[in-house]
C-alpha cells in the first residue's frame, strides 16, 4: 500500500532520529526494507524535510549524508512535552489545541450533534414527503 507524504516523512525522520551517524539517501531507502520507495522519492522527502528545518545535509559533493537537525531522544524535552499534554489546572495557564475536554464534555457534544442530526433528517424527510405529495 503506498504511503502518504506525511507517513513517508515521519518514517524517514524515525530512521534519522534512531541513527547514531548521518545516513545517505541510499541507506535510508534500504532502511524501508522490501517496501522501499524509489530513491528519487526519498531524495524529495529529504529535501522537503530539510526545508522544514528537520534535516541537515552534509556539504560534501559526493556521498551526501543527512542527519536530524534535532535529537528526538532528549528525555528532558520528552518529559516536558508530556507534561504540556497533561490536563488539569494548566488549562488556566496553557491553551492546547486538543483542549481540556473530558468524557462528560464529549457526551454533551455527542448528544447535541445527535439532536441536530435527528432534526435535520426529520426536516429533509418532511421536505421529501411534501415534494412527493405535490
Amino acid at each position: 500500500m503506498p504511503r502518504d507524504r506525511g507517513q513517508l516523512e515521519a518514517d524517514v525522520m524515525r530512521q534519522l532520529w534512531a541513527a547514531e551517524e548521518p545516513r545517505t539517501a541510499k541507506q535510508i531507502q534500504a532502511g524501508f526494507g522490501p517496501d522501499a520507495p524509489a530513491i528519487t522519492t526519498v531524495l524529495t522527502v529529504l529535501d522537503r524535510l530539510r526545508r522544514k528545518g528537520l534535516v541537515e545535509r552534509s556539504d560534501a559533493r559526493t556521498n551526501i549524508t543527512f542527519r536530524a537537525a534535532q535529537s528526538e531522544s532528549d528525555r528532558v524535552v520528552e518529559a516536558m512535552l508530556q507534561s504540556l499534554q497533561a490536563t488539569g489546572d494548566r488549562q488556566a495557564v496553557l491553551l492546547r489545541f486538543a483542549g481540556d475536554l473530558d468524557t462528560s464534555d464529549a457526551e454533551v457534544l455527542r448528544r447535541a450533534l445527535e439532536g441536530r442530526s435527528r432534526r435535520r433528517s426529520g426536516t429533509s424527510r418532511a421536505g421529501g414527503r411534501s415534494g412527493t405529495d405535490r
Binding site: W17, L54, A68, E72, V77, L84, L94, L95, F97, A98
Partner: peptide, 22 residues
C-alpha cells in the same frame, strides 16, 4: 520542536508563542 507526541499549544501573555511538535 522535535519530539514524539502530538503537541500544539500556546502560552498567553506579552510574549505569546505557539508550540507545534514535529
Amino acid at each position: 520542536v522535535a519530539g514524539r507526541g502530538s503537541v500544539a499549544c500556546t502560552l498567553g501573555g506579552r510574549t505569546a508563542e505557539v508550540i507545534l511538535s514535529a
